[in-house]
Structure formats: structure tokens, C-alpha cells
């Protein structure tokens, strides 16, 4: 399956398309579709067809949402694409993909501890892993804009 076919697969789920500088194709999807995208990528291209590079969460306080980005590198062309989804700020929950893509462990644990996004189904999520214990006990997520640190 070459790059254009993979892109078309992802595009099928996209609500909106865009470009992230420099030249990364950006697809905005619904939160429930994130897991479906990875499932179909693994099924159609196999693990050898891509790798998950980074998971990034950003607290958009003024718009009352949290944006979650998944950066995927398609192989062997090595093209980076971005899957972006928006979660409600009060209760950001998304399905974990750790059983499909084991490499998501690092990014999901970090985004949970620093931003508070719950990845349902990930048994390794723990508070106080990354943030100092005193802040974790007070239920503070450091990267939130209103965390006060």
C-alpha cells in the first residue's frame, strides 16, 4: 500500500483537512475515530507501514477544549501526517490505542500526567509519575493554563 492509498484511508475519517508547517498534512477527526484509524492502518498496511512518532496535547482554555495531536510517520516514504482531535476541557477522555500500537505508552502516560487527558483502557496511567507528588496530590495538572504553577 503506498502513501497515496494510506492518505486516502485516513482522509475517509477526516472532518477537515489542513496543512501544518512545514508541509505536514493535517486531518481533523472525531475523538471516537482515532482508534478506528489506527485499527485500519494496522490492518491494511501492517506494522511495517507506519510508526507513531509523537502524541501532543494542548490546553486551549479560551475555546474550552483540549486539542490532541497524533503524529504518524508513513513508511517507507517517511512522510509525517497529523491527526488532530478536540476533546471537551472539563472531561477529556479518548480511547487508548496501546493495545494496537504499543509505542503509544510513552506519549499517553505523559499526556495524562501533565494535562489530564484520560486514555481509557491504558492500565499504566498513574498520577504523580511525572509531576512532583505534592502537586499530584492537589490534583494539579501542570500544563493546564489555570494550574497556577
Amino acid at each position: 500500500m503506498d502513501a497515496t492509498e494510506k492518505l486516502r484511508l485516513v482522509e475517509g475519517f477526516a472532518l477537515e483537512k489542513g496543512v501544518l508547517k512545514p508541509n505536514r498534512k493535517l486531518f481533523i477527526v472525531k475523538p471516537e475515530d482515532v482508534r478506528k484509524i489506527f485499527e485500519s492502518l494496522v490492518e491494511k498496511t501492517g506494522y511495517e507501514g507506519f510508526y507513531l512518532s509523537t502524541i501532543t496535547g494542548t490546553d486551549l482554555k479560551d475555546e474550552n477544549k483540549v486539542s490532541l495531536d497524533y503524529y504518524i510517520v508513513l513508511l517507507p516514504e517517511e512522510e509525517t501526517i497529523v491527526i488532530r482531535t478536540y476533546l471537551p476541557r472539563e472531561n477529556p477522555v479518548v480511547e487508548s490505542i496501546i493495545d494496537i500500537v504499543p509505542g503509544a505508552l510513552a506519549g499517553e502516560c505523559e499526556t495524562y500526567d501533565l494535562l489530564g487527558v484520560l486514555f481509557r483502557g491504558n492500565p499504566f496511567l498513574k498520577r504523580g509519575f511525572f509531576t512532583p507528588t505534592e502537586l499530584a496530590e492537589k490534583n494539579v495538572y501542570p500544563l493546564r493554563k489555570d494550574s497556577g504553577v
Binding site: 506494522y47 511495517e48 507506519f50 510508526y51 512518532s53 513508511l75 504499543p102 509505542g103
Partner: peptide, 8 residues
């Protein structure tokens, strides 16, 4: 396969 699925 291990390398790509574990994001090495």
C-alpha cells in the same frame, strides 16, 4: 516489526 510498532 518490533521497532516500528514500539516507535523506536
Amino acid at each position: 516489526r518490533d521497532a516500528t510498532s514500539h516507535s523506536f
